[in-house]
């Protein structure tokens, strides 16, 4: 995203384009990340209801994963999951694993 100069910005701190937070990768400072055990998941959507950042990705009424670009790792999904299908793992370890 190219940064705008002060003359290009709307006066005042206003965002006129609804939903543009999606362009801003706000999930970069997570300490823990949620991971799902699909064997246990019953797609009840309770995590989808509770997630404060709309990071539960859903396709055809099924949970398909997490939006890690915006998830802050708060752990509410894991706490609320009635089947204990979501585990919070250390982000640093997960990143190290991914790098392998």
């Amino acid at each position: 995203m190219a940064l705008k100069g002060w003359k290009e910005l709307e006066p005042g701190v206003v965002i006129l384009e609804p939903g543009n937070t999606i362009e801003y990768k706000s999930g970069t400072w997570r300490t823990f990340r949620p991971v799902i055990d699909m064997e246990k998941c019953i797609h009840c959507m309770i995590c989808w209801i509770y997630c404060p950042d709309s990071c539960i990705m859903v396709k055809d009424s099924k949970l398909v994963g997490f939006d890690y670009e915006h998830c802050k790792g708060c752990g509410i999904c894991a706490h609320e999951c009635p089947k204990e299908a979501i585990t919070m793992i250390e982000e640093a370890k997960a990143k190290a694993e991914e790098a392998k």
Binding site: L3, K4, L9, G12, V14, I15, L16, P18
Partner: peptide, 19 residues
Amino acid sequence: PKTIGAYDHWDYFFEHRRQ
């Protein structure tokens, strides 16, 4: 629909102040 008073990081805070 619009957002008023959102958070600015170091990336935009100064530009808004410049205005």
